[in-house]
Design a protein around this nucleic acid. Structure first.
Lengths: 347, 347
DNA sequence: TATATTTACGCAACCGGTTGCGTAAATATA
DNA sequence: TATATTTACGCAACCGGTTGCGTAAATATA
């Protein structure tokens, strides 16, 4: 079957078709397409012209098999439709694109079982690297250890695992929490509640510790009754606020573990007619776009989601170019975004 | 090198290693792993035990090459970090996961050139299908035609192309726009402005047409001075509102092409001290989560982003299982989400 | 007991690229 | 003019799976 016939009947046009048409070997065609120095100019020209004419697209799968590199990066996130995660992925994709990599995205839906399954799928898919924010259920890390065993670069972000050593990108959760709680104290708040994330997650613990230490520094006793285990979702912010109000505990501020929770808190307080910030001040963590939409605008800890993705991508690239290097643990700085939801003093 | 040695030194454990260890051929191992009927029970057991022991992961790349199916779906969106797109992708990923497919995500960043490049990358990556929302720059569709030529299922969503016939999932943009403008008219609005998306996009035109026809139905003349070409971003909503206010045109409502723009409009109006809805009513399109966060809550056309992704994924699966079938064009219904930003009458 | 069928494998080609090595012909150097 | 080097390719193995076909040994049937 001639190359013309194959093209017309929508079959794949391969190296071999071009080689047959030109009466050269497929190695020559392969080298011509790579602009290899040992191929004559006339041959190169003829190959490129045919490739163009018949819309030849190299089969990346075949090349991957031989080269043992698929030029893909696997990414696992708990959920894709959250601003933070989709923005981190946008950052990863940007770095990946520029370096000629593709990105395969999987969601764990916060389920350990699904995380294990998709990680094995990505292992079979021979991704060149894996970038992960672990699910809130995950305790056992064996499925990630498999990547390290095979020397596949592994980068964690946001939700860092415990009990496994690898690369990571995170923000200084402790410091961010510390600073924003200190800010509340400076505004005169003395009874500050904290709505935490799932407690087994490192990030949750770090923010909680920052909260506690800020209180202690300013001689405010830590009161466990003001610490509510909540979660990362707006809906959990709403239910936890309702629970807290039912408890009739006297507070003057709430530090929510993340912006979606803070938004849930604010919507509930507003609905109950409680003034923000003068009845209860509210602060969050993330600086999602909604923080500037809600009224009053939400004071929060800005973490650079896109840059986190870029950093994770760059760590991957560095590990590829320098295999066997030490693990890289990058900690990005946060900034306070102070807005009306926490301003009680004129300054 | 024995399988044990390979395992210990973190080399890939392959079919051949298992075959050598058991003194059978690799075809037998391959069939044993597939639970093929022609393999004896004892052999199957021995193979599975070794595979388990040495953590064998099949090389999906090798299988793909022979089977001519990579079990991946390519997805191209203009931008990942928008709620609408990330939620559609979540829907696609859900369907893909259940059917054993992986999802490769690319962003066009609204650039034609980049869309062409990533589509060719996905073609080389031998995706089994492609799901796309086209960039706002894209007019020429040749790069998508390549997929159709090779009988690779292609599904468009949200931003449908003109000049190319394929599968598609969309919402009834015309009807959604018509209904929400009619709602404004019922509330007593007579001077309704429209902030459009990029004009070359079908979706923009359909919403614009719905706006015009609703006005005409109620005998309100269409005034081109009330139609502002805007875009899809919050920032564009802000600048267009400022431009409109500078024009000193008298209006009583704004229909924004999408929620991010509507949010930009509202933030600007609030900043200028204009009451919503009594000074100017505002409505959007999408029902992003921010619609319920802003004060007053935003009336909008709810389109089921997740379901759009699910529908696109299912169309892909159907085309895979029934090759050569007719193109499927699915149009999902929208619902009005009526909130305070447009309520002028007590009912 | 002779033949037919079933069971349980192995052989070898195949998917479409890449690359180390070898070599004839052309050109350069001694 | 004899030898060394360069140019421009081809051969064949390789990556790690899958599958059509063939067949010896075991079992079933006539």
């Amino acid at each position: 079957m001639s190359i013309e016939d194959r093209y017309q009947s929508n079959k794949e046009v391969t190296l071999i078709d071009i080689a047959n048409e030109l009466n050269v070997s497929k190695s020559t065609v392969s080298r011509a397409l790579q602009n290899h120095h040992s191929i004559g100019a006339a041959t190169k020209k003829a190959v490129l012209e045919l490739a163009e004419k018949y819309n030849y697209q190299p089969n990346a799968i075949a090349a991957s098999l031989f080269k043992k590199s698929t030029k893909t990066i696997g990414v696992i996130v708990p959920i894709l439709s959250h601003y933070f995660f989709s923005t981190v992925i946008a950052g990863i994709e940007e770095v990946a694109y520029k370096a000629g990599y593709k990105v395969i995205i999987c969601q764990s839906h916060e389920l350990y079982e699904r995380e294990v399954i998709v990680s094995k799928t990505l292992l079979s898919a021979k991704v060149d690297g894996l970038i992960v924010s672990v699910s809130k259920e995950t305790v056992n890390m064996d499925h990630f250890q498999l990547f390290l065993n095979k020397n596949i670069p592994l980068v964690f972000f946001d939700r860092l695992p415990s009990g496994i050593q690898s690369n990571s990108v995170s923000v200084d959760d402790y410091e961010g929490a510390f600073k924003i709680v200190e800010h509340l104290i400076e505004q005169g708040c003395k009874k500050i509640a904290h709505f935490t994330g799932p407690l087994n997650i490192t990030l949750t613990q770090n923010r909680l510790q920052g909260y506690k230490d800020a209180l202690r520094k300013h001689n405010i006793p830590v009161n466990d009754e003001l610490i509510y285990e909540c979660g990362f979702e707006r809906a959990q912010g709403i239910t936890t606020t309702e629970k807290m109000l039912a408890d009739q505990i006297s507070i003057d501020a709430i530090f929510a573990v993340c912006d979606p929770v803070a938004i849930g808190v604010m919507l509930t307080l507003k609905q109950k007619g409680i003034n923000i910030p003068h009845g209860i001040a509210v602060v969050g963590f993330n600086d999602d776009p909604t923080a500037t939409v809600i009224d009053p605008p939400l004071t929060t800890v800005a973490q650079p989601a896109f840059e986190i993705g870029v950093a994770a991508g760059n760590i991957f690239l560095k590990q590829v170019s320098e295999p066997g290097g030490a693990y890289i643990k990058e900690v990005l700085k946060t900034n306070l975004a102070i807005r009306q939801s926490s301003i009680l003093k004129n300054s």
